[in-house]
Design a protein around this nucleic acid. Structure first.
Length: 803
RNA sequence: GGGCAAGUGGCGGAAUAGGUAUACGCGCAGCACUUAAAAUGCUGUGACCAAAAGUCGUGCGGGUUCGAUUCCCGCCUUGCCCACCA
């Protein structure tokens, strides 16, 4: 008889839910804690394959740890603010509240059908007022601490939709919604002072166990680079000094090759010196052109450098008092470094391209082949190239010259050593409806004022109009009753902020709330936070992971500093789940048509088979191509597991059985710890094969087998356990293995000649080199021979004869 | 352009403090059970060769080593992330 999944799986899912089988107990008196977290669902409708691939290994780990005696916290929730709900509202008019309520119900319903062992009583969505009240509270604290500020900045703007877009919404310079061109527009933007946390974030990266690739991309995102800030005088045609500018460079060794200086178009000094510039009209024109220029143009025309000379002005190279022309150009970014660069066309490809366009002279200062291109840092820095055209440094090796030039510029008082951080402050507002309203008002008398904590949460007002205004303000700005309010400080008339927080806000602290989700007095009780501590294992997809984790570090550090959480590290171990791909190796996503629905597969094959098959397809961190190929093998395995009940037989027990079961315990334990579930399943298959050859399994062995398999296939194992032992598998303990029984008495040793396999020989374990050789000579008389130069012996593995 | 990861049978994938490459599964072939098929079970299955023996085999080219999928150097390809970052 085969395993009837439709009867069995529903029964156990209902039972687990009704009996709160996986409730996490705060302050458990005896058990140590273990916190497993799968990143919460982005609520948009049905769950997809990526969710299943990401969450079932976390579930396996949670179930395993419970057997091992841990008090496990394994919660799930919904990231519910943001685009899916807002877009649905714009498209179909459905109210975002309803959209999210439906989405959450669906997600939780389907999670139960995945067989997840979550503590369902801790579930929430980020758009629940009970939750976002504390998101607003955190913002308020950031604001009070001076770490949230508003300033004018350029943002991506779609003139077609009148909407400000995030970088993700404007891939390749195209608007996500209408596919129109995106331009740059200046707006007031809320920023969080994330840059000043760079060193702390780098500390988190050091301490937390994460894949190297993730650590590296986080370090790149922060972009710490060490260099020199150099001051240059700005002079007019008659060498009158008008001002000083600062440039940042990591290549001070090329300073004698400077032939021009470039400022970002937005550089403020330009306004100040406008009266000294001979071509103010062209300058103004260029500045207005670049602001309208789409991001796509800027990126796609990397070779085509544009710019505008500031005629009549020069920068002076302090090393040799040479004066060089001054430009503004949009390849220089206003928000990196000082917004100004010294240009060395022979040693920087961008400067080279620019110099060619504007016919600026080139000076080579470091040896190297420079036929039609620049000799860049990557080519010369670790070579033996010598300096040239560089005054007293000419002829020195680059590394040595660099040190001496640094010493010289610092000695001259025109430069300082500088650490530069690429990561800017975090732009923190969106012109959308479906997000957390900012808990601040603008008062003519008092300026920007935070709400009283007691007035949180500040709820979203009801509306049916979710579109932005003509000038790109968010939908909230149209709701008079929301906008007009009283200043909490002076009681006078004030206006509310009408932007809302970004999607990232709610996801930057949610693991803290799972610890104490219903607390009305604070974001989470400090003692509960101390008890549950950092997340022991945080799993999730790799999409947006770099920034999500950095934002998480940032908030956790801040909350630590104001004393509301006990540690700077939100996680102990972070793992990234690989992508789920379709048959052609393309990413499976909800938006495209190649998606396979997990519920479809579960309905057809059952949850346990689906889980096992997905585990078996590949490792947790590898991308997995979804295929039905091979699912028959898993189905057949599951049916063999089911029929083990009929093979239970008394107490006959062999040495081989003891070896097999002990080895299985070891293998499965290690594999679950490392989330290497494909090889665990292979071990189960081999074990069951041996059992079937013998034709029986003892009751004790079956008990062990079922407990080991339960984290991967929870339903079938629970059912068999109940049938055979008339008790509940969940109250069992994880079996222990004994190293002594894993050692085999008989080993197969490879006999190699000159490193190539010649024969294998089966001998007793622990045979010495001499005994092994005489055994070989007995069994295979002519193999070793007499012309032997050397014999290499690795006990119980290899005997290599070198001739 | 930069960073990171990965390239192993017909397919998904095992095996790396260097030590019998291809575990486990799919597929395929043969056999058994069937009137037959399905299901199930057993056997075989890297390539070349009728077979044995042998040779070749972990993206390509070198190197270190008694021995390299694993370590080093140089390429190629694919995927992901970032990208005019000075």
């Amino acid at each position: 008889m085969n395993y009837d999944f439709s009867r069995v799986e529903k029964k156990w899912q209902d039972k687990w839910y009704q009996e709160h089988s996986f409730k996490a107990v705060d302050f458990h008196p005896t058990k140590p804690k273990f916190y497993v977290l799968y990143e919460f669902y982005n609520i948009s409708g049905n769950l997809h394959m990526g969710h299943l691939k990401g969450t079932i290994p976390a579930d396996a780990l949670a179930r395993y740890k419970r057997f091992c005696g841990y008090n496990v916290l394994y919660p799930i929730g919904g990231d519910a603010f943001g685009l899916p709900a807002e877009n649905a509202a714009l498209k179909t008019g459905i109210n975002p509240h309803d959209f999210v309520a439906n989405g959450m119900n669906l997600a939780m319903e389907q999670s139960k059908k995945f067989g997840l062992s979550c503590d369902w009583e801790r579930t929430f969505a980020t758009s629940d007022p009970d939750y976002f009240r504390w998101t607003q509270w955190i913002f308020l604290k950031l604001f009070e601490a001076g770490k949230a500020y508003k300033k004018k900045a350029y943002v991506n703007f779609c003139p077609n939709c009148n909407t400000v877009l995030s970088n993700e919404d404007s891939q390749n310079g195209r608007c996500d919604r209408c596919n129109g061109e995106v331009v740059q527009k200046e707006r007031w933007v809320w920023f969080l002072k994330m840059q000043e946390y760079s060193e702390k974030l780098l500390g988190n990266i050091e301490r937390i166990s994460m894949p190297d690739s993730l650590k590296e991309s986080q370090r790149n995102w922060i972009g710490k680079s060490e260099g020199i800030t150099l001051s240059l005088d700005i002079v007019d045609e008659d060498n009158n000094k008008l001002d000083v500018i600062k440039i940042f460079t990591t290549c001070i060794e090329t300073v004698y090759g400077v032939t021009f200086v470039v400022l970002a178009p937005e550089y403020r000094l330009v306004d100040k010196l406008l009266s000294h510039i001979d071509n103010p009209d062209s300058v103004a024109q260029y500045r207005s052109d670049t602001s309208l220029r789409s991001e796509f143009d800027r990126i796609s025309d990397i070779k085509e450098k544009t710019g505008c000379r500031l005629e009549g002005l020069y920068a002076v190279n302090p090393m040799n008092d040479e004066r060089v022309p001054l430009f503004i150009a949009d390849f220089v970014l206003a928000n990196y470094g000082t917004g100004a660069v010294m240009a060395v066309p022979m040693h920087d490809q961008r400067d080279y391209d620019f110099a060619k366009t504007f016919e600026i002279p080139l000076i080579q200062v470091i040896e190297g082949d420079c036929n039609n291109h620049a000799v860049e840092k990557s080519e010369y820095l670790y070579s033996d190239a010598l300096m040239m055209n560089s005054a007293e440094f000419t002829g020195l090796p680059v590394i040595e010259a660099k040190e001496k030039i640094v010493a010289k510029v610092i000695g001259m008082g025109v430069a300082t050593k500088t650490v530069n951080i690429k990561m800017g402050d975090w732009p923190f507002n969106r012109q959308r409806y479906w997000g957390e309203p900012f808990p601040v008002v603008f008062c003519e008398k008092c300026g920007t004022v935070g709400l009283d904590e007691a007035d949180l949460p500040l709820l979203l007002p009801g509306t049916k109009d979710f579109s932005p205004t003509e000038n790109g303000d968010g939908p909230l700005s149209k709701i008079e009753s929301f906008v007009n309010c009283k200043c909490p400080k002076c009681g006078g008339a004030a206006k509310r902020e009408t932007d809302t927080m970004p999607n990232w806000a709610g996801s930057s602290w949610y693991w803290l709330r799972f610890v104490d989700p219903h607390n009305n007095d604070c974001l989470a009780d400090i003692d509960k936070l101390k008890y549950w501590g950092s997340v022991d294992c945080y799993t999730g997809g790799t999409e947006h992971i770099t920034r999500h984790v950095l934002y998480a570090f940032f908030w956790q550090n801040f909350l630590y500093e104001i004393g509301v959480v006990p540690t700077r590290d939100p996680f102990i171990r972070k793992m990234g789940s690989g992508l789920i791909l379709d048959d052609e190796g393309k990413k499976m996503s909800k938006s495209s048509t190649n998606g396979v629905s997990p519920m479809e597969i579960i309905n057809k094959y059952g949850t346990d088979v689906t889980r096992l098959h997905l585990h078996f397809l590949g490792g947790y961190e590898d991308s997995t191509r979804w295929t039905f190929k091979g699912i028959e093998g898993i189905t057949s395995f599951v049916n063999k597991v089911w029929s083990l009940q009929e093979m239970v037989n008394g107490d006959k027990i062999s040495k081989q059985h003891i070896y097999d079961i002990n080895r299985l315990i070891k293998k499965v334990s290690e594999d679950i710890e490392n989330l290497q579930l494909n090889t665990a399943i292979a071990a189960f298959m081999s074990f069951i094969k041996n059992i079937r050859v013998d034709g029986f399994i003892t009751k004790d062995e079956l008990r062990v087998f079922l407990i080991l398999l339960n984290p991967l296939a929870p339903h079938i194992t629970s059912e068999i356990f109940e049938c055979v032992y008339n008790s509940q598998i969940l109250s069992e303990e994880w079996p222990k293995y004994d190293e002594r029984y894993i050692v085999e008495d008989i080993v197969t040793v490879a006999l190699q000649v000159n490193g190539k396999l010649s024969k294998t020989i089966t001998v007793t374990r622990g045979l010495s080199k001499e005994d092994l050789i005489s055994e070989i000579n007995r069994q295979f008389p002519n193999t070793i021979g007499t012309d032997v130069k050397k014999v290499i012996h690795i006990m119980d593995r290899i005997l290599n004869v070198v001739k």
